[in-house]
Computed example of a mutant assay.
Amino acid sequence: MKVKKQKRHRRAVRFYTACFGFREPFKVLCDGTFVYHLLANHITPADTALANILGATVKIFTTRCVLAELKSLGDSYSDSLNAAHNLITAIDSVKCDHDKRKSAVACITEVIGEKNPEHFFVATQDAELRRKLQEIPGVPVIYALRNSLFLERPSGFQHQFAKIAEEERSHMNEWEYKLSKLKKKVAIEEAADASDANESNEDHMLDTRVVKANIKRDGTNVKDQVQFKRKKAKGPNPLSCKKKKTDGNKNASSEKESKIVDNTMRSRSRKRKRSRKSKNVPAATV
């Protein structure tokens, strides 16, 4: 359940950042009911709890009318009043210059205006205020249930407003159409001038080449086409041919062979045949 809630919150934050231009750090405008609920359920520190559900750093604001309303409720809301005093009072960034104290609902509704130009996240427990803020485009609402904080899903009216705004941005008005048409015309003329300049440069270069060629022909009587000499067939490669056998080599080889034969004959003739006497010869008589 916790993972699904985080995904839903991230999806809602992406919707407001993409369609209405919300940027970090996010500004959260709190009323007295929300501050009281945070203290009653020990959801502290408030900036850390809000940063966890929005996934970014936050700055917390309130108004003078909210502080005055908490003060008028008596001692039972003194802790809430002190906690609200610790928040940054958005006097400079939010125009809350009411001479007479207004209710928190009326004050916050007036601060938000018709299009929420300050890009506030509004944190409240007031059901009436939440209902009013859903009818204003680009106003995300934060509320609490027990010890958990929730970011409301964008309403159908806000989705429809974002869709219409996107379609208007995609279509050009009459002035933008004329401007784009003028830009196209200027681009076409510049391209035509550039092509003419390139053609004139090419013609000039071609003329200079022709003049140089004519001058060279007149001065040296060089033919137009170079005549290449054909290579004539030469003899075979001497390295790839076998060596010829000469007569001297044959005589030398025959002499070597005759010497080898004579040596073998001599070696055979030197061997002596030994006669072996038989062991059974009788001894000579005296």
Rank of each mutant, 00 (worst) to 15 (best):
F120T: 00
A49K: 07
E128Q: 07
R169N: 09
A162D: 05
Q125F: 00
A68S: 05
V94W: 03
V105D: 15
N147V: 01
L54E: 15
W175R: 10
S72D: 08
A84K: 03
S170F: 07
M172P: 00
A83W: 00
L70Q: 03
L73S: 05
A84W: 01
S148C: 00
C107L: 09
R131E: 15
A144E: 07
N82E: 13
S78K: 10
F150H: 14
L182M: 12
D97E: 14
N52V: 14
H42N: 06
Y143Q: 03
L87S: 04
E174D: 12
M172T: 01
L39T: 01
A162C: 03
K71N: 13
E114P: 02
T57N: 08
A51M: 09
H119S: 11
H171F: 07
I108Y: 06
E135L: 15
Q125H: 03
I53C: 08
N173I: 06
V94S: 08
C96T: 13
K185H: 06
M172V: 02
T109S: 08
A123Y: 06
A104H: 03
T63H: 04
A40D: 00
A144T: 02
L70R: 07
T89N: 12
S103K: 05
A165V: 10
A68P: 00
N41Y: 04
E152V: 07
D92I: 05
D79P: 05
A162T: 02
G55H: 03
I88M: 06
R131M: 13
D97F: 13
S78E: 10
D47L: 03
A84E: 04
R64W: 02
D79A: 15
